[in-house]
């Protein structure tokens, strides 16, 4: 296992959250989630209360992977986006910067056309933010983290399972 290869700071979270919030407003969406290809939530904005974001992230990653495998069967190399159309609630899922996935939850207040357009614009900004986060010198964060994690003892871990 490698060291944590993604460390999000408060500023990163605020920046990504701000971009997602802007997307919600521009696309008239209900909520937006940024998750990684491995099923974890990176950031969220909008009407997220009551939504199980953890499960949403895991299923989004699985769904996209299944769609990618399906597309290979017909000679296509990649899936860029997916649209889950429900009776009232829709999800638009789009790959951002290869390693991340943008999920927009919307309903009949918006339209697929508007969502596609706004997601495309937001994806560029989010991709650029993620690149900056990944390329930033995180040695200070890592040093602080090292200091904190080095204090974890076996007893601390045992306490997690104290039932």
């Amino acid at each position: 296992m490698a060291a944590a290869d993604l460390i999000l700071t408060e500023q990163d979270e605020a920046r990504l959250g701000g971009l997602l919030q802007m997307l919600c407003e521009d696309a008239k969406g209900r909520a937006a989630f940024l998750v990684d290809r491995y099923g974890r939530v990176l950031a969220a904005a909008g009407e997220t209360v009551g939504v199980d974001a953890t499960s949403l992230a895991a299923l989004t990653a699985g769904s996209l992977a299944a769609a990618s495998s399906l597309s290979h069967l017909v000679g296509e190399n990649a899936v860029r986006s997916l649209h889950h159309e429900g009776e009232k609630e829709d999800l638009f899922i789009s790959v951002v910067a290869e390693e991340a996935i943008l999920v927009l939850h919307f309903n009949r207040r918006s339209s697929l056309g508007l969502v596609r357009l706004r997601v495309k614009n937001a994806s560029r900004q989010i991709a650029s933010a993620l690149t900056e986060i990944a390329e930033r010198d995180s040695s200070q964060d890592r040093a602080a983290l090292q200091e904190e994690l080095s204090r974890i003892t076996d007893a601390d871990i045992d306490n997690l399972f104290a039932y």
Binding site: M1, A2, A4, D5, L6, I7, L8, T9, E10, D12, E13, A14, D36, Y38, G39, R40, D141, L145
Partner: peptide, 15 residues
């Protein structure tokens, strides 16, 4: 790969 959200002070591990 663990993912550490330093802002939320979360360690995420996949088992």
């Amino acid at each position: 790969m663990s993912f550490i959200n330093y802002a939320a002070r979360e360690i995420n591990c996949k088992l």
